[in-house]
């Protein structure tokens, strides 16, 4: 079964920029992290429903959200994590978590822990129930080879919760054992760094997304390919897939039809395909064959997608981005045929 079309079921325009999305416990319930420093709730099963903003909490862009158990946990460029009371929409607990921007917040599958990555180049693990700090580890240098600050954008956890991967601006990926927090592997995707040594002397790329295959053996790495003019996100959306234990690259897929960053990646449960989303000024949702990297299907969107949640069972994909959110139903060969 391979995806052949996406049918948009709902969308909404907004004034703000939505950086992250998490699915609530009810069908059609989503949370967004926003450029207005807030967390917003939306119930799209009720078409009339308006998004509701939680009370003030963060002091900068909200870039990571995780729903775990009954908890909603957000992370922000303000370096803090907030545990929210979903009922009252008030912060229940606020903790200083990092020394630099928090880039992503992710819950472990079994729901006991939440992990964060930030530009202090640390990956940190927290206890969901108590908000206690559990561990911090890193294998990412604070400075790029050109002596500029590096960034730690991406983190992923395997389906069984045993593995964790982190990816940074210069294209370095580390894979960690979630029991011991020991490094068990590493990969390099240096193209994604995009440092321009001649024309403009800076970079805007980096590894922006990571995803383990359901069996945990493969790792998909998303970002952007070589950019001619790094004033713009004018490079091909770039996906690299590795058999990480062997350090073996399976394929590289570059997309020049829809350029920009791959901001998020998910695998099909049968591991036959991979879905990616991201963009430049506009956005895309793209399905790749997981063996060959071949593009199976693609939808362009009017705006950059910063994040999505993909419900494998329901076949729904909900995405948020620049002044916009949308939900699609995935249709596959079998259904159409």
């Amino acid at each position: 079964m391979k995806p052949t079309s996406l049918k948009q079921t709902q969308e909404g325009k907004r004034e703000d920029i939505l950086f992250c999305i998490a699915a609530g416990s009810q069908p059609g319930q989503y949370f967004f992290g926003s450029s207005d420093f807030g967390v917003h709730q939306l119930d799209i099963s009720n078409e009339m429903a308006q998004p509701i903003r939680f009370e003030d909490g963060h002091q900068s862009y909200v870039t990571g959200l995780a729903v775990v158990g009954g908890n909603l946990i957000s992370g922000s460029y303000d370096r803090q994590l907030i545990w929210w009371d979903i009922e009252s929409r008030k912060p229940a607990r606020t903790i200083p978590a990092h020394n630099r921007w928090i880039r992503r917040v992710l819950a472990t599958p079994e729901g006991s822990r939440v992990v964060t990555v930030a530009d202090d180049m640390l990956c940190k693990v927290w206890n969901v129930e108590t908000a206690e700090f559990v561990a911090a580890f890193t294998d990412h240098r604070p400075l790029t080879p050109h002596d500029y600050p590096s960034m730690l954008y991406a983190v992923a956890i395997s389906d069984d919760g045993s593995l964790l991967a982190t990816g940074d601006k210069v294209g370095h990926v580390s894979i960690w054992d979630m029991e011991s927090f020991a490094k068990v592997g590493e990969l390099e995707a240096p193209t994604m760094y995009t440092w321009d040594p001649v024309q403009r002397r800076h970079s805007i790329g980096g590894i922006r997304s990571l995803a383990f295959s359901p069996d945990g053996e493969k790792l998909a790495v998303g970002g952007i390919g070589a950019i001619g003019n790094i004033d713009h996100l004018g490079g091909p959306a770039r996906l690299e897939v590795f058999q990480w234990r062997l350090g073996k690259q399976l394929f590289v897929a570059e997309d020049n039809d829809h350029k920009g960053l791959i901001e998020q990646i998910a695998w099909a449960s049968d591991e036959r395909w991979i879905v990616t989303a991201g963009g430049d000024h506009k956005g895309f949702v793209t399905f790749h064959d997981a063996e060959t990297g071949e593009r199976l299907h693609q939808e362009g969107t009017s705006s950059h997608i910063h994040g999505f949640v993909f419900d494998r069972d329901a076949g729904t994909l909900a995405a948020c981005g620049h002044q916009h959110w949308a939900q699609w139903n995935l249709q596959s060969e079998a259904e159409v045929g």
């Binding site: 600050p149 403009r200 002397r201 970079s203 996100l233």
Partner: peptide
């Protein structure tokens, strides 16, 4: 001259990088 600050894309990443310098 320190070029090039022309951050049409990724303004914040660009300034995080170049302002440190």
């Amino acid at each position: 001259a320190r070029a090039w600050w022309d951050s049409h894309g990724q303004n914040f990443e660009t300034h995080r990088e170049l302002c440190a310098d």
